[in-house]
């Protein structure tokens, strides 16, 4: 079964590569690419993101999760460079990176569509992490 892929973007190489290891353990069947850092430093780079996106792109689609401001700006630029900015096959999830990626990989693993995977990621914005707390 082909599945939706995930692209994880962070200012830090370690953050997204660590997160990718975590997700691979949960669901090894989902293709995940990590684009973290810029030239070995902290930052984001549109060309690094473009290469990562190309490596996992499939017709099922890709959901992108990102950390801070310029990650989104560079990712949008990368998606435009590949001509995938019609909002159909590549979707940005407005979600916390770790919890969102976890929910996304579970949904992608059971064969969810690109919209369903993005929605699963975004649903974690309301996640209550400590039971009984408000």
């Amino acid at each position: 079964m082909s599945r939706v892929s995930l692209l994880l973007i962070s200012h830090s190489h370690d953050i997204v590569n660590g997160l990718k290891s975590l997700l691979n353990q949960v669901q090894p069947e989902v293709n995940i690419a990590a684009a973290g850092g810029a030239d070995g430093d902290i930052g984001t780079n549109a060309f690094t993101i473009k290469t990562a996106l190309e490596s996992i792109y499939s017709e099922r689609g890709v959901v992108i999760l990102f950390d801070l401001g310029s990650a989104l700006i560079n990712a949008e630029l990368a998606v435009e460079m590949l001509g995938l900015d019609d909002g159909e096959k590549v979707i940005f999830a407005d979600a916390p990176l770790v919890e969102g990626a976890y929910a996304a990989v579970v949904e992608a693993g059971v064969g969810g569509t690109v919209e369903e995977v993005a929605a699963a990621a975004e649903s974690t914005k309301q996640l209550q992490k400590i039971a009984g707390e408000k």
Binding site: A38, D41, G43, N45, A46, F47, S70, I73, L77
Partner: peptide, 15 residues
């Protein structure tokens, strides 16, 4: 600029 400037200023000035 897009390829060498990390952070938001790369894609913004680049654009």
């Amino acid at each position: 600029l897009i390829s060498t400037v990390g952070g938001a200023s790369g894609p913004l000035y680049g654009t």
